[in-house]
């Protein structure tokens, strides 16, 4: 009967129906209670207006590479022997913590790059295609993911063990829900922009991933090459921020010109 997260609208419908059925005063009070509870959580983000039409002739691109200078930190081996299922999924190979990883070519993976400021005047419709977050070998794949406000997040588990996904957020409602092996995917959306949220599995406390929700499609997460690209950005001046879990954040002011590519590289150092 209870609903998490975005389902608050559904919770509100429960109240009035319950009142009609019984007509008793106390039930009304309880329904009010339930209603209050759903109102107290942040309201879903409602599109203020229709998506801003964007002329393809006026858009440009930002791309760049995230470098790392200095000695890469030692990454701890993750001990999974608490849950034998997790350990067996890796067939005895040691698994290292994902945070603090540096690519062999001296670039950084798992960097979340997005427009921190400058794009507020545009409105973008959320894509209906879900972003996938998988639990695989008792690790989250991907480790860092971006998502647009209102876009569905699909959480699946490929492990033959129980997981729970505990979202830690400030702007968005927190949630915490278990997923048994073989259970259907969990769908969640974020109603407000927030960089960064984290999701953790309490049953396997080493499991953590980072979720950046932004109000526009201009975000990227670096991979093994350390490169990123933000395409289709309307001409203008923006603050580009590069976020890392271990080395802090950096930002740059970038001006995008129509049909031009602007470079914005970042170089992180050990904290």
């Amino acid at each position: 009967m209870e609903r998490y997260g975005h389902g608050s609208g559904k919770v509100r419908r429960h109240g009035p129906r319950a009142v009609q059925r019984s007509g008793r005063l106390w039930l009304g009070a309880l329904a009010a209670c339930a209603m209050l509870s759903s109102c107290s959580q942040p309201r879903p983000h409602v599109m203020a207006s229709k998506p801003t039409p964007i002329n393809p002739a006026t858009v440009g691109e930002i791309d760049g590479t995230i470098y790392f200078k200095g000695t890469p930190p030692r990454r701890q081996v993750i001990h999974m022997n608490e849950d034998p299922v997790c350990a067996s999924e890796h067939r005895g190979r040691p698994v290292h913590a994902e945070d603090g990883k540096v690519n062999p070519n001296g670039t950084l993976p798992n960097v979340f790059v997005y427009l921190r400021a400058g794009a507020e005047k545009y409105v973008f419709a959320p894509p209906s295609r879900p972003v996938l977050l998988a639990q695989k070998g008792c690790m989250y794949v991907p480790h860092v993911l971006g998502i647009q406000v209102g876009q569905p997040l699909e959480i699946i588990s490929e492990d033959p063990t129980m997981h729970n996904v505990h979202l830690i957020a400030k702007n968005n409602p927190e949630w915490n829900v278990s997923q048994a092996p073989g259970a259907p995917p969990i769908f969640k959306t974020f109603s407000r922009p927030e960089v960064m949220m984290s999701a953790e599995c309490n049953q396997h406390p080493w499991m953590r991933c980072y979720i950046g929700a932004v109000a526009n499609p201009f975000y990227a997460v670096t991979g093994s090459s350390g490169e990123y690209a933000l395409r289709g950005v309307p001409a203008g001046t923006y603050t580009v921020e590069a976020w890392t879990a271990t080395f802090g954040t950096m930002e740059k002011s970038v001006t995008v010109r129509p049909k031009k590519t602007t470079q914005a590289n970042f170089t992180f150092q050990p904290m």
Partner: peptide, 10 residues
């Protein structure tokens, strides 16, 4: 306390 971090194994 501030350094406790399960994701990095500390």
């Amino acid at each position: 306390l501030r350094l406790i971090n399960d994701a990095t194994g500390n």
